[in-house]
Design a protein around this nucleic acid. Structure first.
Lengths: 122, 122
DNA sequence: ATTAAATAATACCTGAAAGTATTAATTTAT
DNA sequence: ATAAATTAATACTTTCAGGTATTATTTAAT
């Protein structure tokens, strides 16, 4: 959708491009609509468009709405907080990849998907 | 085990420290033994010790033996190769966190788990 | 008005990973 | 020899994310 963000697209349109199951796709679209990322229009000639500008939609926000980001923010061993003075065994090792990962999600927007040329959808 | 790598430990010993299900723990230990990371001794006063020096056991190797590393090495969209001249939409965005993640796994050994002080097991 | 094309709601199914149960085999202490 | 303490093998159960199925609602073209 981000590659063609100006136009309203129906589930059918999207299904024809992306080869993911149609019914599943529709459920995801409904979820995204409920979360306010896209705007749904029902009825004949309906479909979906982005509800907000692409450069304001961060990956972290989308993931957060779907499954929560918290699972990534804790430490690998146990999900509770990991105090610096008594860290879990993986704490130091995991810190760098975890931060890089979270930083990517928190600083990348859907607009960044459009930056490349010659893009495959799958 | 890495925090106490010199001593042979039985599943019972380990279970008392880590609070993960005993039977499940045993199955994991058997798998690790089959993969050659630890050496099992059966019978009364049996248990497990590392089969190799800790600083030769990389995280990447352990994960690889359990579930394969390949799933992490491909691109996010689709698991096949992602050619540079026609990359998938996520290719560039995903490159950095993926590399950081893989590099951590490929350069960190069990010996590195012992470097900290005051370590929690969970 | 009727029909077609779309989204919404909701309940169900499925396959794989996580976890459990049971029994067998091995070793050592007595 | 026997019993106790361990690992090994194998089959079963549970859970849950991913995916389906069905029916209802909404809108526009005719």
């Amino acid at each position: 959708m981000a590659l063609n963000y100006e136009t309203q697209l129906s589930a059918r349109n999207l299904f024809e491009e992306l080869q993911i199951p149609k019914r599943y796709l529709m459920r995801l679209l409904t979820d995204l609509s409920k979360s306010g990322f896209i705007k749904a229009t029902r009825g004949r000639s309906g479909g979906y468009v982005f509800a907000r500008s692409l450069d304001t939609i961060y990956f972290s926000e989308i993931i957060d709405s779907v499954e929560g980001l918290l699972s990534f923010e804790g430490c690998v061993l146990g999900s509770t907080v990991c105090p610096v003075d008594k860290p879990c065994a993986m704490h130091q090792i995991w810190e760098k990849p975890k931060q890089t990962f979270l930083e990517t999600l928190k600083t990348t927007t859907l607009a960044d998907l459009r930056s490349g040329k010659n893009i495959r959808l799958q």
